[in-house]
Amino acid sequence: MADVSAEARIEAPAEKVWAQLTDFTSYDRWNATHTSFPKGGPAPLEPGATFEENMKLMGFPAEVLWTVEELETARVLAIRGKGPMGVSVGTRYSLTADGDATTLRIDGEFTGAAVSLMAGKLKDSATAALNESLRRLGALVA
């Protein structure tokens, strides 16, 4: 198992951060691991909705089938997915409003036999990607 997280204060209201976070047509502008949504993002965005994402992590392409697990507008988006080689992936975006700013925390989780073989490198790569994603997202909404 590999757990990763990153957090940033974004100088924009939670509603504006949420709007960008859930605009699946613009993920390539901020999400450092995203390459495409072959069939588009979840529509409608609701618990139980599924969608496919092509990603790249540690230089390797991966296809993930995601399911929306938790959704609370402008507060929480949690998704869980199945990737290649029996790897399970979880991502949770948590927004905390702070006046005209928002603290956005991203927690990620990777489990499966293949993860244990490269947990250290995976943590480093995924943490760097989360931090880069937060930087890009902040630049888009600020």
Score class of each variant (00 low, 15 high):
residue 137 L to R: 00
residue 59 G to Y: 09
residue 40 G to H: 10
residue 99 G to V: 05
residue 98 D to A: 14
residue 135 R to Y: 02
residue 94 S to C: 09
residue 84 P to I: 10
residue 142 A to V: 02
residue 42 P to K: 03
residue 13 P to N: 01
residue 24 F to W: 11
residue 83 G to P: 05
residue 28 D to S: 12
residue 131 N to D: 12
residue 80 R to D: 09
residue 114 A to R: 04
residue 5 S to R: 15
residue 22 T to I: 09
residue 92 R to P: 09
residue 48 G to I: 06
residue 73 T to C: 08
residue 27 Y to T: 10
residue 21 L to E: 00
residue 2 A to P: 07
residue 16 K to M: 02
residue 79 I to L: 13
residue 54 N to H: 13
residue 109 E to S: 13
residue 65 L to V: 13
residue 56 K to M: 14
residue 11 E to Q: 10
residue 71 L to V: 10
residue 133 S to I: 00
residue 103 T to N: 13
residue 7 E to L: 13
residue 104 L to I: 01
residue 53 E to L: 10
residue 137 L to A: 01
residue 70 E to H: 06
residue 72 E to Y: 07
residue 77 L to C: 06
residue 100 D to R: 07
residue 127 T to H: 05
residue 96 T to P: 05
residue 45 L to C: 11
residue 50 T to F: 09
residue 93 Y to H: 12
residue 43 A to N: 15
residue 47 P to G: 03
residue 98 D to P: 01
residue 87 V to S: 06
residue 125 S to I: 04
residue 64 V to N: 03
residue 101 A to R: 03
residue 138 G to R: 02
residue 81 G to E: 02
residue 35 T to D: 14
residue 41 G to V: 04
residue 92 R to Q: 13
residue 71 L to G: 11
residue 8 A to G: 10
residue 112 G to T: 02
residue 65 L to E: 12
residue 77 L to R: 00
residue 138 G to D: 01
residue 129 A to V: 03
residue 129 A to P: 01
residue 88 S to D: 10
residue 123 K to I: 07
residue 76 V to A: 07
residue 33 T to M: 13
residue 111 T to F: 04
residue 107 D to C: 05
residue 117 L to P: 00
residue 116 S to D: 03
residue 112 G to C: 03
residue 2 A to Y: 06
residue 3 D to G: 12
residue 130 L to W: 07
residue 49 A to E: 04
residue 81 G to T: 01
residue 75 R to Y: 09
residue 69 E to H: 10
residue 18 W to C: 02
residue 20 Q to M: 11
residue 52 E to Q: 15
residue 63 E to Q: 15
residue 78 A to Q: 12
residue 134 L to V: 06
residue 34 H to V: 09
residue 135 R to L: 05
residue 123 K to P: 08
residue 120 G to P: 06
residue 67 T to F: 04
residue 125 S to M: 05
residue 64 V to G: 03
residue 6 A to C: 12
residue 62 A to W: 08
residue 81 G to P: 04
residue 85 M to E: 06
residue 82 K to C: 01
residue 88 S to W: 00
residue 136 R to Q: 08
residue 136 R to W: 00
residue 84 P to L: 14
residue 25 T to C: 03
residue 15 E to Q: 08
residue 96 T to A: 14
residue 35 T to R: 14
residue 97 A to Q: 09
residue 76 V to K: 08
residue 103 T to E: 14
residue 131 N to M: 07
residue 74 A to I: 05
residue 5 S to E: 15
residue 109 E to W: 07
residue 107 D to A: 09
residue 109 E to Y: 07
residue 50 T to Q: 15
residue 66 W to H: 09
residue 20 Q to E: 10
residue 89 V to W: 11
residue 80 R to P: 05
residue 70 E to T: 14
residue 127 T to S: 12
residue 47 P to Y: 04
residue 72 E to N: 13
residue 23 D to K: 01
residue 27 Y to Q: 10
residue 75 R to N: 12
residue 43 A to C: 12
residue 109 E to C: 06
residue 77 L to Q: 01
residue 24 F to Y: 11
residue 5 S to Q: 15
residue 1 M to I: 04
residue 37 F to T: 08
residue 103 T to H: 13
residue 89 V to G: 01
residue 69 E to Y: 07
residue 114 A to T: 04
residue 104 L to G: 00
residue 33 T to E: 15
residue 100 D to I: 02
residue 66 W to K: 03
residue 66 W to F: 13
residue 2 A to D: 09
residue 55 M to P: 02
residue 105 R to V: 14
residue 8 A to K: 10
residue 112 G to P: 02
residue 60 F to Q: 14
residue 48 G to V: 07
residue 138 G to I: 04
residue 6 A to S: 14
residue 34 H to A: 12
